Simulated scan of single mutants.
Amino acid sequence: MEADRSEARAFIAALVREEAPSLPGTPALAVPEGSVAEVTAVARRLALYVLPAGRPGPEPAPELLELAAALVVDEHPSAPRWSAAERRRLAHWVAVLIEHRGEDGVQDLVRELNRG
């Protein structure tokens, strides 16, 4: 199990190092526009729910922060209106969610944002 996690983290880190440029066009995250406060509140709630009991604080792996920013935060249709600090805060909670739920966590976030 731990070997699988380290392989997955190595793969993610390799993707992040590619530093692919953002492409123009429609954002890839299929959710309605919203304020960064609303989106962050949903991501935070979901992330805190999946944290293991007794964990001192939600500190995601640095490579997951970059992945969350690139594949989720920057792909939100409202992201161009958010500040860099707001994006970092949201990326933090999305990274915690990814760390503990993987793609299922992102799908949970998309589902909740579409309900909202």
Score class of each variant (00 low, 15 high):
Ala3Asn: 12
Gly54His: 10
Pro56Lys: 14
Pro32Val: 12
Ala84Gly: 08
Pro77Thr: 09
Arg45Gly: 07
Ser35Phe: 10
Leu71Val: 12
Pro52Glu: 11
Glu18Leu: 12
Val106Ser: 03
Phe11Lys: 03
Glu18Arg: 11
Glu2His: 09
Gln107Tyr: 08
Glu112Cys: 08
Ser22Lys: 13
Glu33Cys: 11
Pro56Gly: 05
Pro32Gly: 06
Ala10Leu: 12
Val96Ala: 10
Pro24Cys: 05
Asp74Trp: 15
Gly105Cys: 04
Thr26His: 05
Pro60Ile: 09
Pro52Leu: 12
Pro32His: 07
Ala85His: 04
Arg111Ile: 05
Gly54Asp: 01
Ala70Ile: 00
Ala8Thr: 14
Asp74Met: 07
Glu33Gly: 12
Ala37Glu: 14
Pro58Ser: 08
Phe11Asn: 05
Gly116Glu: 01
Asp108Arg: 15
Arg44Ala: 12
Leu67Gly: 02
Ala79Lys: 00
Glu19Ile: 06
Leu51Pro: 02
Glu18Ala: 05
Ala28Gly: 05
Gly105Tyr: 01
Val72His: 00
Ala8Cys: 13
Glu66Tyr: 00
Glu63Leu: 14
Leu15Ala: 06
Arg55Ile: 09
Tyr49Leu: 12
Glu59Thr: 11
Ala53Arg: 06
Glu18Thr: 07
Ile98Gly: 07
Glu7Asp: 13
Asp108Ala: 11
Leu51Gly: 04
His76Trp: 14
Ser22Gly: 01
Gly116Gln: 11
Leu46Ser: 05
Val106Glu: 10
Trp82Ala: 01
Pro27Ile: 07
Pro24Val: 05
Ala20Trp: 01
Ile12Asn: 08
Ala41Lys: 09
Ala69Gly: 07
Pro32Lys: 09
Val110Pro: 00
Pro80Cys: 14
Ala85Ile: 02
Leu15Cys: 13
His76Tyr: 14
Ala14His: 11
Val96Phe: 02
Asp4Ser: 07
